[in-house]
């Protein structure tokens, strides 16, 4: 069985220039159980999934994703961000049991 839930990672391009629209890749380890499967012993596995993802940039909410268990295990999402200023990008995942997982990464412009 898996040993970790909520191990989160954010990836940004190595070099960011002011005004770029960059792609952000966000992943969190989570079983995303649908509630429709059973263990090999026949016990039902209850639904348990990430249901809410909030993206903040410089403290302001810029996106929010409502998910169901129809998103794959260890959910991955990539989305754009207009890097018109430097700031902290923060993503918070909340699962159906109320656990939250947060990861931050600085959006900083590289020296020319």
């Amino acid at each position: 069985m898996r040993t970790t839930i909520g191990e989160a990672r954010l990836r940004l391009p190595a070099r960011i220039a002011k005004g770029d629209v960059i792609m952000v890749n966000a992943i969190v380890t989570h079983p995303m159980d649908t509630g429709f499967f059973r263990t090999p012993e026949g016990q039902p596995i209850p639904a348990f999934f990430v249901k809410d993802v909030v993206v903040r940039f410089g403290g302001a909410e810029v996106a929010r994703f409502e998910w169901t268990s129809g998103i794959s295990r260890d959910p991955v999402v990539s989305f754009p961000l207009l890097a018109d200023r430097e700031g902290t990008l923060e993503v918070t995942w909340t699962d159906s049991q109320g656990s939250t997982f947060t990861q931050q990464v600085p959006v900083a412009f590289g020296a020319a």
């Binding site: 996106a63 998910w67 990539s78 989305f79």
Partner: peptide
């Protein structure tokens, strides 16, 4: 459960492009 996801966006994203994996 037919609704897999609802993605609420804002102008700060710069464009519409979402990549993910579903069941």
């Amino acid at each position: 459960d037919p609704l897999v996801g609802a993605f609420h966006l804002s102008p700060q994203l710069g464009r519409l492009e979402i990549q993910t994996r579903i069941k």
